[in-house]
């Protein structure tokens, strides 16, 4: 840009005006982050090369067998294969879709929370609901196992002792309502955490708006509907668009720890499938091939969502 400017104006005074005196300083300040982006986002792309080899740990790539596009074609090589892929993608999109549907819950929760007048109670509620976010899925599963196991599970024992059930059942090994149950776990874990951003957004709304609305005779619900909700809508939208980009990344650890033979048909998302077939069996080439496709799909979804946002709201997120 500078170069073209100099060419056009050919004047040192104008050039000075357009050049930032601090440009090197600013660039230096940004460079650690640029380097991080380069290291963690662009350098790993080199690893895509493994998708074309039969890589085995320890053996350099130069001595590994070249496989061409075998790993890519093997994903869809026959009807059963395609069925499997279809099943896995259905699960992935189902969990992502349910995740999006439930993404309004933190908004509602945040609004309700800010409406609480007793600040001690408010803080207790917020702490309690935020805490689960910091518990790893591994521990969540042990907790679930303690609650629901047949012999020692708290829930089964309680229901059994109260004579509400005749036979203890293994809830964790049931294939029914897997999507719903997994989504509920996720909501339980993420509700408080997800609300934090919206609470911040609500705090940022100009109090004068509320005062003006009150003067106009708005009650509590109208305040919420006409001031609070529009005030946090843009935050919600940005988060929604970003989440579309990761539509195909439904997550891994939750499904990994909760998966078993009974629920596998409904719980196996793409990442878990890659782990089960690729990583656990040492098929690194295959695992890489699938994740390349995943990255491409994410990219397409993201640009689609962004242009949709431009179309609907007149502005994109990037």
């Amino acid at each position: 840009m500078n170069a073209s400017l100099t060419k056009v104006t050919n004047s040192s005074i104008v050039r000075k005006r357009f050049q930032s005196r601090d440009k090197y300083k600013l660039f230096l300040m940004a460079s650690p982050f640029l380097i991080l982006v380069l290291l963690f986002s662009y350098l790993p792309l080199f690893g895509w090369i493994y998708a074309f080899y039969d890589f085995r740990p320890g053996i350099p790539l130069s001595q590994s067998k070249f496989m061409g596009f075998y790993w890519f074609t093997s994903m869809v090589s026959n009807p059963i294969q395609r069925q499997e892929l279809y099943r896995v993608l259905t699960n992935t999109f189902a969990f992502s879709g349910l995740g999006m549907l439930t993404s309004v819950l933190p908004v509602i929760f945040a609004i309700l929370l800010t409406e609480i007048r007793n600040s001690a109670f408010k803080r207790i509620v917020q702490t309690i609901t935020t805490l689960p976010n910091f518990i790893s899925w591994v521990l969540v599963y042990s907790f679930a196992f303690m609650l629901f196991s047949v012999d020692n599970g708290f829930v089964n024992n309680l229901l059994f002792k109260l004579n509400w059930i005749e036979q203890p059942t293994n809830i964790l090994a049931s294939s029914e309502h897997v999507w719903l149950r997994m989504t509920l776990w996720e909501v339980w874990k993420g509700l408080g955490w997800g609300a934090i951003l919206y609470i911040a957004a609500i705090t940022g709304i100009d109090p004068e708006l509320y005062e003006a609305a009150r003067v106009d005779g708005a009650g509590r619900f109208r305040l919420i509907w006409h001031v609070t909700v529009p005030g946090i809508m843009s935050t919600y939208f940005v988060l929604l668009v970003l989440s579309i980009a990761s539509f195909i990344n439904a997550g891994f650890d939750q499904f990994f720890v909760f998966s078993n033979a009974m629920n596998m048909n409904h719980i196996e998302v793409l990442d878990l499938y890659v782990y089960n077939v690729g990583m656990a069996n040492g098929n690194y080439g295959f695992a890489t091939a699938v994740s390349i496709l995943k990255s491409l799909v994410s990219l397409i979804l993201f640009f689609a969502a962004n242009s949709l946002s431009k179309l609907v709201r007149g502005e994109g997120v990037v």
Binding site: D54, S74, N276, V277, N281, G282, N283, F286
Partner: peptide, 15 residues
């Protein structure tokens, strides 16, 4: 490599 991949997938189904 192809047998290994197939075994992984078949094994998953059998299990």
């Amino acid at each position: 490599a192809d047998i290994k991949l197939k075994r992984g997938e078949v094994g998953k189904v059998i299990k």
